[in-house]
Amino acid sequence: MSTSEAFLRAIDLTEVHTAFGGRAFEAQPQPVPWPKAYGGDTVAQSVAAALRTVDDDRALHSVHSTFLRGVDVAEPMHYDVEIIRDGRGFSTRHVRGHQHGRLAFMATASFHVPEAFPQHGPAMPSVPAPESLRSSAEALEGHEGADIDYWSHGRSFDMRHVPGTLYLEVEGERTAHQAVWVRSFERLDDDPRTHQVALAYVCDYTILEPVLRVLGLPWRAEGLVTASLDHAMWFHSPARADQWLLYAQECAGVADGRGLGLGRFYTHDGRLVATVAQEGMIRPGRPL
């Protein structure tokens, strides 16, 4: 049975001694069927580390990340958190992730004391309800492989695609847009920070899929190699990641072996929760 264990293990940080003047943590990347760790794993761990250094009255409102090297799933990541600023309304943290003695990841996270204020956001697209769509496990039923097991139930989140998955083939229209309903397989705790970290964790799984959809490339395309390059995420309002959220996505551009994906998370009733932008390297393995 699918569980949310991988996500919960990923954000199980251990504080360690540091001599550089901030605070430091270690976390274990979660197993994947490929040599390098899932990028959302690293983003979520850095966010969780930064959150450990700010007061409870502040909520994460943005994180900007750069992936410098692939992360080895067999070794812990070390995160140094530099306390840049604590003001009356905002706090800023810089996080540097190290592995094997080399810098692999950097992020800047900003926190804000919430204020009562009007809300506005783009309208949520009209898509079928998640209950009417196939889960990843149902879409991959009858197929075998380590990647199939991982896509089916190893990612802590139930994901349901519109217009269809890209695991084995590009299902549905070859378009620059798609949407994915997501929620954790199990109930998470009631801490709003857990749910922000959960969104940071899950956001990277499918954000490059509109780029692949435009190019006509499924994840199992022979020779395909992708890598996250940089990532930005803005949090607009709180929401539970263990309830259905719509992740509406689009390909914002493809050129020079790189693709830019944009995404927005909405609650089931259409409230904008977060906005994501991510650029990735695309190596198709065949002429396009």
Rank of each mutant, 00 (worst) to 15 (best):
residue 229 L to Q: 11
residue 242 D to C: 06
residue 179 A to N: 10
residue 166 L to F: 07
residue 211 V to I: 04
residue 214 V to M: 13
residue 185 F to R: 05
residue 258 R to F: 08
residue 244 W to V: 14
residue 183 R to M: 07
residue 175 T to Q: 11
residue 178 Q to H: 12
residue 196 Q to A: 15
residue 227 A to F: 11
residue 187 R to A: 14
residue 220 R to A: 15
residue 184 S to H: 15
residue 231 H to M: 06
residue 192 P to G: 12
residue 206 T to W: 05
residue 252 A to T: 14
residue 201 Y to V: 13
residue 176 A to T: 15
residue 191 D to N: 13
residue 230 D to H: 14
residue 259 G to V: 04
residue 254 V to R: 04
residue 233 M to L: 14
residue 197 V to Q: 02
residue 195 H to V: 04
residue 200 A to H: 03
residue 223 G to I: 08
residue 221 A to P: 00
residue 235 F to G: 01
residue 241 A to I: 09
residue 244 W to M: 12
residue 256 D to K: 11
residue 184 S to R: 04
residue 195 H to D: 05
residue 236 H to C: 06
residue 257 G to Y: 06
residue 183 R to K: 15
residue 206 T to N: 07
residue 247 Y to P: 00
residue 229 L to G: 07
residue 215 L to G: 03
residue 258 R to M: 08
residue 214 V to H: 01
residue 198 A to H: 05
residue 176 A to P: 14
residue 225 V to R: 15
residue 165 T to H: 15
residue 177 H to P: 12
residue 238 P to V: 01
residue 190 D to K: 13
residue 244 W to H: 09
residue 227 A to C: 08
residue 200 A to K: 02
residue 205 Y to P: 03
residue 167 Y to F: 15
residue 252 A to Y: 04
residue 196 Q to C: 13
residue 223 G to S: 13
residue 248 A to N: 01
residue 223 G to L: 12
residue 236 H to G: 06
residue 216 G to V: 09
residue 168 L to H: 12
residue 215 L to N: 07
residue 182 V to F: 10
residue 173 E to L: 11
residue 227 A to N: 03
residue 207 I to N: 06
residue 238 P to E: 06
residue 229 L to C: 09
residue 250 E to W: 05
residue 164 G to R: 02
residue 229 L to H: 02
residue 175 T to A: 15
residue 181 W to T: 02
residue 205 Y to M: 13
residue 201 Y to I: 10
residue 215 L to V: 05
residue 169 E to Q: 14
residue 223 G to M: 11
residue 206 T to A: 12
residue 218 P to Q: 12
residue 228 S to I: 07
residue 230 D to F: 13
residue 244 W to A: 09
residue 249 Q to R: 09
residue 248 A to Y: 00
residue 219 W to E: 06
residue 179 A to C: 13
residue 208 L to I: 15
residue 223 G to Y: 10
residue 208 L to P: 03
residue 168 L to W: 07
residue 165 T to K: 05
residue 251 C to Y: 03
residue 164 G to L: 02
residue 169 E to P: 07
residue 207 I to K: 02
residue 248 A to C: 06
residue 217 L to A: 02
residue 201 Y to P: 01
residue 195 H to W: 03
residue 181 W to S: 06
residue 189 D to R: 06
residue 221 A to F: 02
residue 200 A to V: 06
residue 243 Q to F: 06
residue 180 V to L: 03
residue 219 W to H: 14
